[in-house]
Design a protein around this nucleic acid. Sequence first.
RNA 1: GUGACCAUAGCUCAGUUUGGUUAGAGCAUCUGGUUGUGGCCCAGAAGGUCAUGGGUUCAAGUCCCAUUGGUCACCCCA
Length: 419
Amino acid sequence: MIKAITGTKDILPSDISKWYFLENLIKKIFSKFNYKEIRTPIFENTSLFARGIGEATDIVSKEMYTFLDRSGESLTLRPELTASVVRALIEHSLEKKQSLNKLFYIGPMFRQERPQAGRYRQFHQFGAESIGSNDPLLDAEMIIMAFDILAQLGLKNLEVKINSLGVPSEREDYKNVLREYLKSHLSNLSEESKKRFETNVLRIFDSKDERDIEIMKHAPLLINYLKDESLSHFETVKSTLKKANVNFSVDSSLVRGLDYYTHTTFEIVSKSVGSQSALCGGGRYNGLVKELGGSDLPGVGFAAGMERILLACENENVLSIPEDKIDLYIITLDKTKSELSYNIAISLRRKNLTVELDYLLRSVKAQMREANKLNAKYVLFVGGEELKNNEVVLKNMLNSEQENISLNEIEKLIKKIGE
RNA sequence: GUGACCAUAGCUCAGUUUGGUUAGAGCAUCUGGUUGUGGCCCAGAAGGUCAUGGGUUCAAGUCCCAUUGGUCACCCCA
């Protein structure tokens, strides 16, 4: 048997309504904030992600699905979408058509990691990018939108964490301070963190190793090395969130693994899922557009994992999806009349009714059971004595009332079902 | 990439500890329960190479090894 690739999942018809529900909510909230959807290709030139996300990041160095196409070009299935959106913006000069572009997206992403709860190799993200302004109100807007979507789903066990990474020069200065502090503790750090000391010293804050955590507790904090401009940016984000009633905590260890972040970073975690608890994350990326060959435009954005969100919804039992139902099930009494049933079904469907009928030549009892299973509001009996008078029988499945209707009065039937 | 645990019907699981007839249940599916009428109920049917391959044994779903797949955690991230 050929099976789905490791880490990929089929979304079956029995699950699709919760995806529709989530997608519709996302589109609704983004449109209230006047964000427009953008759809970019599933694959891009490998160099886009290498430059955009950062060569040294885990995503680029060991998680991307990269392959050569038939002409020998290196392509990569998108592992995230910020780089693609920025590429599209530059390629189509969107910033020249309007100085602030507010964009959102929904779609599959690909990363070759070991699957576990809330983590797949093909997974779905939605997210937003706002490119063209350094206004901290937009940083806050990202967090508010993400929070509103999660809150409107009914999720409760949420924690909003924010931090500021300042600008690159501040961060470089701080890294030196941090390295100075860590020098004396170097031998006590975990093996992983010893490597990070060289490659990306900030990431030591992310460590779950007890020894590392103890050492980092007393480490100098980046926030104390930010200059006035960065601090006031961060203050505005915080006060804006407070006014919008979004509870948050400042988490100085929130460093995040993508190279492009500046100033605000944030994450919303849920206690209702497994260890992959970050439902969404994002931040400001003021250097990215220029890095990818565009003009020097500031930007801010976030992405959210849809599988994780649905998992949290399931665990908190908050989604109330109405059960599927159909307007009418047509039951054919005489098998010789199935063509008539079929024709009635077609014409009623064209009148905007949801209609089903039997294709398996089953007994009347079996057809009734099927109608019941499909939650049919009405059932129509076609055949027998009534048909000799050019009539069909309409049955209301809720109160079991039946009435004869002439085939010449189909409009009456539509009206009745539509009520 | 590292580690732990798991694999029996479409689904959820008994049976494996202590090897011994024809591998079971519930749900789901299908067919009936008197002419042409659902849900509840009742009866019956169908559905399994016990993940795959090898080994031990008179005998393997059960013990051993390998492989494959899955789950969870590390790592990383959404």
